[in-house]
Amino acid sequence: MAKVLAIANQKGGVGKTTTSINLAASLATTRRKVLLIDLDPQGNATMGSGVDKADLEYSVYELLTGQCTLQQALRKTGKAGFDLLPANSDLTAAEVELLDMTRREQRLRDALADVRERYDYIIIDCPPSLNMLTVNGLVAADSVIIPMQCEYYALEGLSALVKTIQRIGQTLNPSLQIEGLLRTMYDPRNSLTQDVSAQLAEHFADKLYKTVIPRNVRLAEAPSHGLPALLYDRQSRGAEAYLALAGELVRRNRLAARQAATAN
Rank of each mutant, 00 (worst) to 15 (best):
G238R: 08
R189V: 09
V51E: 00
S129A: 15
A94R: 12
L227V: 02
V162E: 01
T211C: 07
A80V: 08
L181I: 14
T29Y: 15
P228S: 14
S159W: 13
R118Y: 01
I21Y: 03
Q67G: 08
A25C: 05
L192P: 15
M185E: 13
P127E: 00
D120I: 10
C126M: 13
A80P: 05
T171V: 09
C150T: 15
S20R: 08
A113N: 07
S143A: 07
R32M: 06
N131L: 10
Q235A: 12
L227T: 01
Q10P: 04
E151L: 13
A25R: 15
G238S: 09
M148G: 00
C68R: 01
C126K: 00
T77G: 00
S129I: 06
K16F: 09
I146T: 01
L108Q: 04
S191P: 13
T193K: 04
D83N: 00
E151D: 07
E62S: 00
P188M: 08
S224Y: 05
K33F: 00
S20L: 10
T18G: 10
A80S: 02
L74E: 04
G238T: 04
V144T: 10
M185Y: 01
K11W: 13
T29N: 08
Q72Y: 08
R107M: 11
R31M: 07
P228L: 08
E202K: 00
A111P: 08
N88R: 11
L245P: 11
R234A: 02
D206A: 13
I7Y: 07
L23Q: 05
I213Y: 03
P86D: 07
V51N: 00
Y119M: 09
T164I: 07
A239P: 10
R237G: 09
A201T: 12
T171R: 11
T164Q: 04
A263V: 13
L230Q: 09
Y119N: 08
T18H: 09
L182E: 04
L108P: 08
N131R: 02
G81A: 05
S26P: 03
C126E: 01
A45N: 07
S197Y: 12
I21Q: 01
C126Q: 03
S49T: 02
R75V: 03
R251A: 12
Q106L: 15
H225F: 15
R167S: 10
N173P: 11
P128Q: 05
L5I: 14
V60A: 03
V162G: 03
E117H: 14
L158K: 06
R104E: 01
